[in-house]
Amino acid sequence: MRSSEANVILRGGPARDLPEQERIRRVEDVTVRIKLMRSNRYEHFEPSTDRVSVEGHELLAFDWAGSTYVAE
């Protein structure tokens, strides 16, 4: 995704499972927690009040809040 289409950047969490290029994304509602399926778990990110400049665009930062595992 191009950063001109994105409105958030995800910070923190397990770097090996979430490459940098997947941390910049577009979300519809920037006021709710983001839940991403990664392997056998969900990674949770919460909105912050911080803004980060990426390629000249201001993105709202979401901070990693933890993981939960998928029930079998």
Rank of each mutant, 00 (worst) to 15 (best):
M1H: 11
R2Y: 11
R2W: 11
R2C: 07
S3M: 04
S3F: 03
S4L: 13
S4V: 04
S4R: 14
E5I: 02
A6K: 07
V8I: 10
V8M: 01
I9C: 02
R11C: 08
R11M: 11
R11E: 15
G12R: 02
G13T: 04
P14W: 12
P14H: 12
P14S: 11
A15G: 00
R16N: 13
R16K: 12
R16I: 04
D17V: 08
D17S: 07
D17C: 09
L18S: 05
L18W: 02
L18N: 09
P19A: 10
P19Q: 07
E20S: 09
Q21M: 07
E22V: 06
R23V: 00
R23S: 03
R23D: 01
R23G: 06
I24P: 05
I24H: 00
R26L: 09
V27M: 10
V27W: 12
V27S: 02
V27H: 09
E28R: 14
D29W: 09
D29C: 12
V30W: 00
V30S: 15
T31S: 10
V32Y: 07
V32C: 08
R33L: 13
I34A: 15
I34Y: 05
I34E: 15
L36N: 08
M37Q: 14
M37R: 15
R38Y: 00
R38C: 04
S39M: 09
S39A: 15
S39I: 11
R41W: 05
R41P: 06
E43V: 05
H44S: 14
H44N: 15
F45I: 00
F45K: 03
F45A: 11
F45N: 07
F45T: 04
E46F: 05
E46D: 15
E46G: 10
E46N: 14
P47F: 08
P47S: 04
T49W: 05
D50P: 00
D50R: 15
D50T: 06
D50G: 01
R51V: 12
R51L: 14
V52R: 13
V52N: 05
V52T: 11
V52D: 07
S53D: 09
V54I: 13
E55H: 10
G56K: 03
G56Q: 03
G56L: 03
G56W: 00
H57L: 00
L59E: 07
L59C: 06
L60E: 05
L60S: 02
A61G: 03
A61L: 10
F62V: 01
D63R: 15
D63C: 09
W64G: 01
W64T: 02
A65Q: 11
A65T: 01
G66I: 01
S67G: 00
S67A: 12
S67I: 03
T68G: 10
T68R: 05
V70R: 12
V70T: 05
E72H: 08
E72I: 06
E72C: 04
E72A: 14
E72V: 07
